[in-house]
Simulated scan of single mutants.
Amino acid sequence: MADHCRLGIAGLGLVGRRHADAIAACNGARLVAVADPSADGQASADALGVRCFPSLDEMLDEAALDGVLLASPTGLHVDQAQAAVARGCPALIEKPIGTSAADAMALVEAAEAAGVPLLVGHHRRHNPLSCAAKEVIAEGRLGIIRAVQATCWFYKPDSYFDTAPWRKEPGAGPISVNLVHDVDLMRHFCGEVVAVQATASPSMRGFANEDVAAAVLEFESGAVGTISVSDSTVSPWSWEMTSGEYPVYPVTPESCYHIGGTDGALSIPDMRLWTHRGAPDWWMPISATSLVRGASDPLVNQIRHFVEVVLGREEPLVSGLEGVRTLQVVEGIQVSAQRRERVSIPRLGRG
């Protein structure tokens, strides 16, 4: 392999361009090709100084890639990743890994059989905030986790939907588009979800999907979580507006996650650890300690990690199987909201 890991991107839209910027900021990686049939994609590739192929297959066959990033529409993820696996090319697949957990699991099994690494772009796990929170939990500073709460509320303007009408269609509501990020971090922090019970309300703007939903998550550990999402609610309580991760969003000093255990509670991303003086006791004084955390771009961190996986020096932090299990929970929330009943989440794969 050359001094730089040769990477390609399929789909040079908003997310694809962010990946291109992240690759440019990573010393061990170099963007050498793009696959995008659109005129905008060609123009963006020209601006980046890389060759633009009209199809992923042509890029995989001609560009001599060490790895490929799939930033194409979700419906293409599984087929495109299968094409990469067939050529022995490691793939970083944008979230969600696919539109169906069953189809995505077939992809994961094919990649495992071929020995080709798959990563899923749940980039929040690469944020130093998430790493610090995970460390606090793993060290047992909260005791036994018993309750989890996640809030994902914001107001998307009409222009957001008008510029991309597919966002008004079934399956493109905030459960699948936004909540998938929060579900993935809840799994990362608190373990597997074994059942969900959810409800959702139709879009007030008349779109063919929901604009608010909430779910109760039952964790394998016995902990219970509540999670809610709305793209029609003015609020400072979302990862986008509390983490400072992406500068296009205004930053607030609030938190959007709360995790409570038998010894303490943690709010994220402000990283305040709450404990009682002495033994846990609601009649005893309680105080917060603000924990130290680093700051770096999670997308750049994710590219660095992808390079290390391609080189065989690290195992995927968010493997294909991890992506499937997060998608299972999101599917369960959607089904439960439709049926208004509890839905069990089967455990797929090993580990």
Rank of each mutant, 00 (worst) to 15 (best):
Ala91Asp: 07
Ala91Ser: 08
Ile93Met: 09
Ile93Phe: 08
Pro96Gly: 02
Pro96Lys: 04
Ile97Lys: 09
Gly98Val: 12
Thr99Ala: 08
Thr99Gln: 11
Ser100Gln: 13
Ala102Cys: 05
Ala104Met: 14
Met105Phe: 14
Leu107Phe: 07
Leu107His: 13
Val108Leu: 09
Glu109Asp: 12
Ala110Glu: 13
Glu112Val: 10
Glu112Asp: 14
Val116Glu: 01
Pro117Val: 13
Leu119Asn: 09
Val120Ile: 14
His122Ile: 15
His126Leu: 13
His126Glu: 10
Pro128Trp: 09
Leu129Val: 14
Leu129Cys: 14
Leu129Gly: 15
Ser130Val: 15
Ala132Val: 05
Ala133Pro: 11
Ala133Met: 12
Glu135Tyr: 05
Glu135His: 00
Glu135Met: 07
Ile137Trp: 05
Ile137Pro: 06
Gly140Thr: 11
Gly140Met: 11
Gly140His: 08
Gly140Arg: 11
Arg141Gln: 12
Arg141Asp: 13
Gly143Glu: 12
Gly143Ala: 04
Gly143His: 05
Ile144Tyr: 04
Ile144Gly: 06
Arg146Ala: 12
Gln149Pro: 04
Thr151Ser: 12
Cys152Gln: 06
Trp153Ala: 02
Trp153Thr: 01
Trp153Asn: 00
Phe154Thr: 09
Phe154Lys: 02
Tyr155Val: 04
Lys156Ala: 12
Pro157Cys: 02
Ser159Asp: 01
Phe161Lys: 01
Asp162Trp: 00
Pro165Val: 12
Trp166Met: 13
Gly173Pro: 05
Gly173Trp: 00
Pro174Lys: 03
Pro174Gly: 06
Pro174Thr: 10
Pro174His: 03
Val177Cys: 08
Val177Arg: 06
Val180Pro: 01
Val180Asn: 00
His181Met: 04
Val183Ala: 01
Leu185Asn: 04
Leu185Lys: 02
Met186Val: 05
Arg187Gly: 02
His188Ile: 01
Phe189Ile: 05
Phe189Glu: 03
Cys190His: 00
Glu192His: 10
Glu192Phe: 03
